[in-house]
Amino acid sequence: MLEAEFWVAVAFVIFMAIAWKAGAFSMMTKGLDGRANRIRHELDEAKRLREEAAAVLADYKRRQVEAEKEAQAIVASAREEAQRAADEGQRKLNDFLARRTQAADTKIAQAEAQAEAQVRAAAAEAAVRVSETILKERLQGDAAQGLIRSSLGEIQTRLRA
């Protein structure tokens, strides 16, 4: 009975009695309870932070969707504005071409009228010369010369008009 294991067991029982009397068990229990409370509080705080992070993430995703929609609206608006500008440019170009064509047609018509007037004047001048030559050959005298001049002047005036 006096073996080493016996004395170890007796020492252990005495140590436990002294520890119990000194309140070591209640201190260990309080320490464990305090630690459990601290861990519970940290878990609650982590849960609150997680929920807050989830709310922030949801807000970020919502803002991202809104930003994408706004960007698409801006792109669509820019495309419409570009199309309007292109249409306006095309319209102005067509108007410019129409005005230039009209001006060219007017110049052509004026040139044709001027050429026609020049041809008529040249024809009238040639007709007057031919007529003067023929009448000079056929008519003789001062009275005939006056008649020829007045007739030719009248012919020239009529042909030029």
Rank of each mutant, 00 (worst) to 15 (best):
A4I: 10
E5H: 12
F6S: 03
W7L: 10
V8P: 01
V8T: 15
V8M: 07
A9T: 12
A11H: 14
A11L: 15
F12W: 12
V13D: 11
M16C: 01
A17K: 01
A19L: 02
A19N: 08
K21S: 11
S26Y: 11
M27C: 04
K30I: 09
K30F: 03
K30D: 11
G34F: 00
G34V: 00
R35V: 14
A36H: 14
R38F: 10
R40D: 15
R40F: 13
H41M: 08
L43M: 09
E45H: 00
E45T: 05
K47V: 05
K47L: 06
R48D: 12
L49H: 03
A54G: 05
A54S: 10
A54N: 09
A55Y: 08
V56C: 01
L57M: 12
L57I: 03
A58M: 05
D59S: 01
D59E: 13
Y60A: 14
K61F: 14
R63H: 04
Q64S: 04
Q64M: 09
E66G: 07
A71M: 09
A71R: 13
A71D: 12
Q72I: 06
A73T: 13
A73H: 04
A73P: 06
A73Q: 08
A73G: 02
V75D: 02
A76E: 06
R79Y: 10
E80S: 14
E81H: 03
A82P: 01
A82T: 01
Q83D: 08
R84A: 06
A85D: 10
A85R: 12
Q90D: 15
R91V: 03
R91A: 05
K92L: 08
K92F: 02
L93E: 15
D95Q: 10
F96I: 03
A98Q: 10
R99F: 06
R99N: 12
Q102G: 06
Q102D: 06
A104Y: 04
K107H: 14
I108K: 05
Q110F: 01
A111C: 02
Q114M: 05
Q114V: 08
A115I: 04
A115G: 04
A115V: 02
E116R: 03
E116Y: 06
Q118W: 12
Q118G: 02
V119H: 12
A123M: 05
R129A: 14
V130Q: 13
T133Y: 07
I134S: 01
L135M: 09
E137V: 03
E137F: 02
E137Y: 06
G141V: 09
D142Y: 09
D142H: 09
D142S: 13
Q145W: 06
Q145M: 12
Q145A: 15
G146K: 14
L147R: 03
L147F: 07
G153V: 02
E154R: 02
Q156K: 10
L159Y: 00
R160W: 01
R160D: 14
R160H: 07
